[in-house]
Amino acid sequence: MNAPRNVSYQGYLLESLKDPAEAAAYVEAALELDDPAALLLALRQVAKAHGMAEVARRADVGEKTLFRTLSENGNPTIATLHKVLHAVGLRLSITPEHA
């Protein structure tokens, strides 16, 4: 990701996270940190890129629930995580830890 100098990092990040491949790589990198807070931050950024209200609508969860779920202290269920990922065009998959 090389942001033009006249664009803020946050703006550039949110724009790039609209691309499903970029969003998937971003969330994957957060997962590799093995830190739940980093994963929630990554998911929050991806949801912001797609518009939190729109993600909440597509995921069939309330906006307050979405904000709370993806907050620093959030603890989403697998069902909610699946809904949010689906709402932004991603899906959960499992791979062997050591290939």
Rank of each mutant, 00 (worst) to 15 (best):
T95S: 13
G51I: 07
R58K: 15
L31T: 03
R91M: 07
L13C: 03
D35N: 15
I94H: 02
M52W: 02
L40Y: 06
D35F: 06
A42H: 07
A42V: 01
L39E: 13
T77V: 02
G74M: 11
H86K: 15
E28A: 15
A23L: 05
N73Q: 13
K64H: 07
Q45L: 00
H50T: 06
H82S: 12
Q10F: 02
P96I: 00
P4R: 15
P4L: 11
M1G: 15
E72P: 04
A29G: 03
A53S: 13
H86Q: 14
D35T: 02
L85I: 04
N2M: 09
P36G: 02
L43K: 05
A30G: 10
R58T: 04
K83I: 01
P96W: 04
N73P: 00
A29Q: 06
A25K: 13
S93L: 06
R57V: 02
L33E: 15
H82P: 00
Y12R: 12
V61N: 08
D34A: 11
N75W: 06
A24Y: 07
A56K: 12
E28P: 04
A37G: 03
V88Y: 07
R68I: 00
R58M: 05
E72I: 01
N75P: 03
S16E: 13
N6S: 15
R91H: 09
S16N: 09
H82I: 05
R91D: 10
Y9V: 03
E72R: 14
H98W: 06
K83Q: 14
T65S: 12
E22K: 10
E54Y: 00
K48C: 05
V27K: 12
